[in-house]
Design a protein around this nucleic acid. Structure first.
Lengths: 224, 224
DNA sequence: AGAATGCTTCGATGGAGACCTAACTATGCG
DNA sequence: CGCATAGTTAGGTCTCCATCGAAGCATTCT
């Protein structure tokens, strides 16, 4: 029997799949709301809330209340370092990813992330929008460029509406490890993709599958 | 829902108090038998055996059978680093130990971290080696300086051997919150300290206690 | 004020796993 | 061989906690 810092307590906090998923999502560095984290973890809102209060009590998270939103973030670099260390071990001893199934491949290409598009397609889209100066990017901040209004209104998206949520937000993509576009604009684009039937959502999955003509249309609008 | 390395699996292995105690005991660097670990963990032998097979299956331990004894040890430096990282967080957020006992004081000054020295002494040593340009440090990376070979060979340590493990590595010290020296060089230095009898290991603890003349010798060689 | 949204608390349920005793296998010793 | 020590396996109990639906606050929008 030993004493010393209670390492089991901390480790068991990370040891639950739902909480691990949440922490993983927060490794992107941006704080997320309880709903977003519930989606990431694949659990209901009450369950997520319970997990979050445990993580808070364990000192692994910080909380920033803004109006009716509650943004949870990692408590600090030390916590992030710990997650990295655990991830490193998991990667090393890991059950050597069996053959990635077809779903995994589709998920990698394009999937829904809360309310916007993620995956290779989404990362490529953000890159292209920035390269064309339609969006301006500075580290993790994304703003509208001068031609944004005209460009997006041409395809039926109004970026000048003043919603509560930020129009643009960077969201770290776990498969590509680079950012894609979130925020209301990201959500509006996903809406358009689905409304135009360029792609459909895989049932019971976050994967988004483009039809061949839909893919062409998407690339013509966003990747040219 | 995410995928990626199964961090929850690894963390939950550490997240059980009995297993955490076992891992903690193994942080001393010496392999222990199942009975010894059962004692450390405060559980019965069958329970310990069950835990050990889980840790083995999780890839956190190595096993060396010798006759009817089975010696369990940490699987490697990466696992040791993970435990240290978790310990650091637990220490930081932990239920602020009421009053540090005498043994805690000794642990703070100098202790074994898997195969190298940790604690105030170790942090001071790395600081000094960097200040003298014997080691070159850049963030978390540590390299040998130009005079390293001659300096260490003068005290009987060969730094030019090419092992698989890195010669130098930074390891975050949970008590001081700054880095100390790990890697094969860190291990060799600990070996020398014990071989020269500058210090002895506290029984059943990771603490390392310097004798007065030993402390002088150590400081002459590494802290001047 | 009333409706809508974001989140937490409550209460009940089910399943996972930590634990021990007892029985079994393996190695070493006289 | 027969006994002792080291360790694992089997079987069964019990506690903990992850989970969800429903209901309750809190904040903001209209």
């Amino acid at each position: 029997m030993r004493e010393g810092p209670d390492i089991a307590r901390i480790a068991s906090l990370v040891g639950d799949p739902a909480r691990a998923n949440m922490l993983n999502a927060l490794m992107g560095g941006t704080a997320l709301t309880a709903s977003e984290l519930a989606l990431e973890a694949g659990v209901s809102l009450p369950t997520a809330s319970s997990h979050l209060s445990k993580l808070m009590e364990g000192g692994l998270l910080t909380l920033a209340s803004q109006g009716r939103h509650r943004y949870y973030g990692l408590a600090g670099p030390q916590v992030a370092g710990m997650i990295e260390a655990i991830t490193g071990v998991a990667e090393a001893v890991g059950p050597k990813r069996v053959r990635p199934g077809p779903r995994d491949g589709a998920m990698r290409v394009a999937r829904v992330c809360y309310d916007h598009l993620a995956g290779e397609q989404a990362v490529a889209m953000l890159d292209r929008l920035v390269a064309r100066d339609i969006l301006l990017r500075n580290e993790n901040e994304i703003r509208l460029g001068p031609s944004a209004t005209s460009h997006f209104s041409a395809i039926g998206i109004d970026v000048d509406a003043k919603p509560r949520r930020p129009v643009c937000r960077a969201c770290l993509d776990w498969s590509v490890r680079r950012s894609h576009l979130a925020g209301t604009l990201g959500a509006a684009i996903l809406d358009k993709i689905l409304a135009e039937k360029w792609a459909r959502r895989e049932k019971d999955s976050r994967a988004v599958v483009f039809s061949p003509p839909g893919k062409q249309a998407f690339e013509r609008v966003f990747l040219m």
